[in-house]
Write a protein that binds this DNA or RNA. Structure first.
Lengths: 338, 338
DNA sequence: CTCTTGATCGAAAGCGCTTTCGTTGATGTT
DNA sequence: AACATCAACGAAAGCGCTTTCGATCAAGAG
């Protein structure tokens, strides 16, 4: 490994001057700067990030963590899309992402501890569980942080407009003539799940539609299987709904499967609208009408918020709500009058 | 931030002894070790990774890079699944992953340079393009490296058994009575694409089946749209195939769409088999029969290979081929005799 | 010709940690 | 009593870089 001392020796300047030249300090003449830069290039010099960070207390890294109750980590399309957007954006600013574990060598440690150990400049967490103690710990710490997909009063958060999303869905179904509208919700202890439930209730109320007993069923952790189970429950009702707003595309797809299995035709017998707009939504049959989350915008906004905090060296508390969009496809249909 | 000097002052020992206690050196008595550990815990001491790395030349990080011609990065289910598996495994060994950019602050630099700058202990790259110069550069460097999804004579590689995968697919179609079997291939300059083509040809030859003119069509970069286009070409043939082996699930899904659009019924009129077994494969209609890549095993094997090189401090050149598996679902059917 | 100014450069300390090597004192040996 | 042995500890250098604070010297001011 070649160091600034090697460059110093080669060019005849001191290591101080070399360092200054490399860092564009004003007190080094054009000529010597150029000489140093040239031999640096020639010798293939690369700075040592660890030494730099040790000296400057800045690592140009951002720690990313997702709460993985569901154990699927990066495999969830929503998560990975958001992170990918975030990564691209952070890259432009010169930051690398570090995916940290809870496992500080042998000794198990918290994510916060791990991030402190790594000396990250900021943290981004994708978490839907507002009560995750690990996340709380990070929020309460002084490191710049932005959390995605949940709300919190003590830090920067960015998430989709789940409330309007619910309204969008319900109003759309209503516009198709549906009144018996059910909701397969996500786990209410998950932020997104809870708010979408609220969106459903609010929208129903505003339309003066009754929420019939049994129409609000908890689909749990947003999986396909749970969506199917929830659908079964709805279909077991004496008076099944004609339309269903499902809080996640995976669940919606599971729900469609379950309905089809019982002989229902979608959208003829049953309209279904999902949430997320994962890739799969466009390719199932029928193509799933859904509320699209703007993962790009979420990642971009999150990066901006984090950068701002890093630069200003103070945490800013704010809530960024990213608009959602109705993706009209094939799984919903105008209710036939009987 | 609290340092070993703080611990030293507090406990009355030297920083040397503190460091040794923390690192389980033998020449420190049980009693003082315990005392030091206790006050470390009490004061909330955390080591500084940068200082540690600077001193030891070991960073406990692994750089990950994916070649992103297709610009989808982590959003591809195969990539993200492999990385997720890799991450879990590496975590057990105490390593963090760092997703590096090409952008070393302002100055654009190569991935290799960036990884050197970061002082990673090893590199994992997911790359299908055997000619990517960036990847070549890394392979030729002395840093431990493992590359996934392509072959190379100069480093450790792990990839699926694409050859057998092709045979599996063809033999399966043949067992259903198909003889007019086409192949929608991936871009031949992509390793996986090329080998699957070979697998197709070999298997056809072994079965003494002719590859009719026009039956081998290049589907390009594995996207849904390109799959659809490729299917159109096949269907334009005077003598269209009765079965198609498609080199990727996305393309296969696109192909099915295109066929359906032209009035074909799958699998009645046309059998289709894909490659990858992405999640979507199980939920399109008909459910896609496909060759499953074992992403978990790939990630695990890659981690092991990388660890071994890091520990032995020498690169090992080897090829790990991970078995694939036929997932029989609904998109293939026995050929009706006319 | 002396003094100030400003442009360039360097010495040295410091960032937090590891590791070599030496010191000290206690214990056991003969 | 003199010696070797060993366990426990610390001084100090080094990892590669940044940054403060002076030092130096030439040019311009008076």
């Amino acid at each position: 490994m070649i160091t600034i001392y090697d460059l110093a020796k080669k060019t005849g300047f001191s290591s101080t001057t070399v360092s200054k030249a490399l860092n564009n300090y004003p007190d080094v003449s054009k000529k010597t700067r150029q000489a140093i830069l040239d031999t640096a290039a020639e010798m293939g010099y690369l700075p040592n990030a660890h030494a730099q960070s040790l000296s400057t207390k800045k690592s140009w890294t951002i720690g990313v963590m997702f709460s993985e109750d569901n154990e699927i980590g990066m495999k969830h399309p929503f998560f990975s899309a958001v992170i990918e957007s975030f990564r691209k954006q952070a890259e432009k600013e010169g930051y690398d992402l570090i995916l940290a574990s809870r496992n500080l060598r042998n000794r198990g440690s918290s994510y916060l501890e791990h991030f402190k150990y790594r000396g990250v400049d900021g943290i981004v967490v994708i978490c839907s569980d507002p009560n995750d103690p690990q996340v709380q710990e990070m929020i309460d710490a002084s490191i710049p942080i932005v959390v995605i997909d949940m709300s919190n009063q003590n830090c920067s958060v960015v998430f989709s407009d789940n409330l309007s999303g619910g309204a969008l869905a319900i109003n759309y179904l209503y516009s198709l003539g549906h009144t018996k509208i059910a909701h397969i919700s996500g786990e209410p202890s998950i932020y997104a799940g809870q708010v979408r439930i609220q969106g459903y209730k609010d929208a129903m109320k505003k339309l003066k539609l009754p929420i019939i007993e049994g129409y609000l069923v908890n689909g749990g952790m947003f999986s396909i299987e749970e969506g199917a189970k929830a659908m079964d429950k709805l279909l077991d009702l004496k008076e099944p709904p004609t339309a269903i707003f499902v809080a996640g595309d995976h669940m919606a797809i599971g729900a469609m499967e379950a309905a089809k299995k019982r002989g229902y035709n979608i959208p003829d017998d049953l309209s279904i609208i999902g949430y997320d707009d994962i890739e799969m939504a466009s390719y199932v049959t029928p193509k799933l009408t859904t509320i699209k989350q703007d993962t790009d915008a979420i990642g971009i906004r999150a990066t901006q918020l984090l950068m701002k905090q890093i630069i200003q060296k103070k945490k800013i508390i704010t809530e960024e709500i990213i608009p959602v969009e109705l993706m009209e496809r094939e799984s919903c249909k105008r209710l036939k009058k009987k």
